[in-house]
Design a protein around this nucleic acid. Structure first.
Lengths: 226, 226
DNA sequence: AACAAAGCTGACCGATCGGCCAACACAATC
DNA sequence: GATTGTGTTGGCCGATCGGTCAGCTTTGTT
């Protein structure tokens, strides 16, 4: 033992666990909890199956660990929002951050999607607890924006769901999107174009006018607001 | 043999197959192709496992049959669209029809979602063929709408994806939605409210003004942008 | 050098997987 | 009443599932 720390792990163990988590995320995201097998995960990580269980204990604890990691990654979003915030800036940032997160963690996003599809057996507490509170608090602020005339009076919960679904679509349905577009993956330009489109439609659709965006033409012209 | 027909099946066989398909759709939609087991499907249908294979041949042919059935159900959508159509009417109908279809076939929608998540192993040909053409033809018409000044110049492909994702979200993520809203399922009023919201935001966001909708209030405010 | 602890893995466990088949039930035809 | 074709199913097959364990190697401490 090199350090007195009890909680900290050795560097080699960390590296090993990271490679297992990476492989497991790929397999779970494609086939869900029941459809994934430890043997396939082990093969993809280049390790014997018993080694996976040595580090992770069980299939379930490995899966739960991946879920928790993904939930943590999403927590950075829409944190600093107040009744005094500018809706245009906040929602634009929300949309773009979500798009970036989806591109940064495609497997994690799909993992989450598969968990929800299965009926959220491991996430039901989180959804009805933490996440519900998160939505409720943001919705309350958006309602104040509407009352202040900063935007149309729309149900903020539907707005949040709209942004979630529209952005996640491009990671979780990447097979469909790339099949239709005839590309293997989305390019940087595609992502920029999509983000611009979503910002334009959603902000305008919610009646959010912004001086910084007023001069911005729709989509087909290349200009950045200043 | 009662009838001369070769293609037609006996009523009892049809009833049996229908009950198998119903049970299989539930299981496949929750756990995906690999995660589903014939034993579970058989139990849910109240039949011995061998009976499933007698009627369906194999797990794969049962799965493919469900996929094809779901693709057929979706074909009714956005069929009658021309450059002369009214974008407001067409897109409003598109949004509402998609919402209704999602509610009518929730398991089928989830089945499709799981297939895409897995990388669309059984649907890649369909996506890159039929569906791509479908999108391309609709997109071409929408571009004409833009050229005619009927709507903003946006990429119609992103618009189609937006409507797909926003509507499908409420069936495929029903576990998340109901967890957050604290309900077991969405009510009729919820669905009406969501449809109104999506129509409002998307049409307005695309710069589509409509006389037929002018009398319709947005959620609560009586004013439509001019 | 001796010992202990941690890392590692082949072999094995009972359960379950998709699929096959022989045996049987049953109705219609001759 | 014998024959034939369809429906039905228990039992079995080899493969694979998640998980355990004994026993090996490697590393660190004294």
């Amino acid at each position: 033992m090199t350090a007195v720390s009890v909680t900290h792990e050795s560097p080699s163990r960390e590296r090993m666990e990271a490679s297992i988590l990476r492989a497991a995320e790929e397999v779970f995201s494609q086939h869900g909890y029941r459809g994934a097998s430890l043997q396939v995960i082990a093969d993809r990580a280049g390790l014997p199956k018993a080694n996976i269980l040595y580090y992770m204990g069980s299939k379930q604890s490995l899966y739960v660990r991946l879920l928790n990691r993904m939930m943590r990654r999403w927590n950075e979003v829409l944190e600093d929002i107040t009744p005094d915030s500018d809706p245009a800036a906040v929602l634009s940032d929300f949309i773009r951050t979500k798009m970036v997160l989806g591109q940064r963690y495609p497997e994690g996003s799909k993992l989450f999607a598969a968990e929800i599809l299965a009926g959220a057996p491991f996430l039901s507490d989180y959804l009805a607890g933490e996440l519900r509170d998160w939505v409720a608090s943001r919705a309350a602020i958006m309602r104040q924006w509407s009352a202040q005339g900063k935007m149309d009076t729309v149900d903020p919960r539907w707005l949040i769901f709209l942004i979630w679904s529209a952005t996640q679509h491009y990671t979780e349905y990447s097979a469909q999107v790339s099949g239709i577009l005839g590309r293997d993956a989305l390019s940087e330009d595609d992502l920029e174009s999509i983000s611009d489109f979503l910002e334009h439609v959603i902000l305008k659709g919610c009646g959010i006018t912004t001086p910084t965006l007023a001069s911005k033409p729709n989509i087909d012209v290349h200009r950045i607001e200043k």
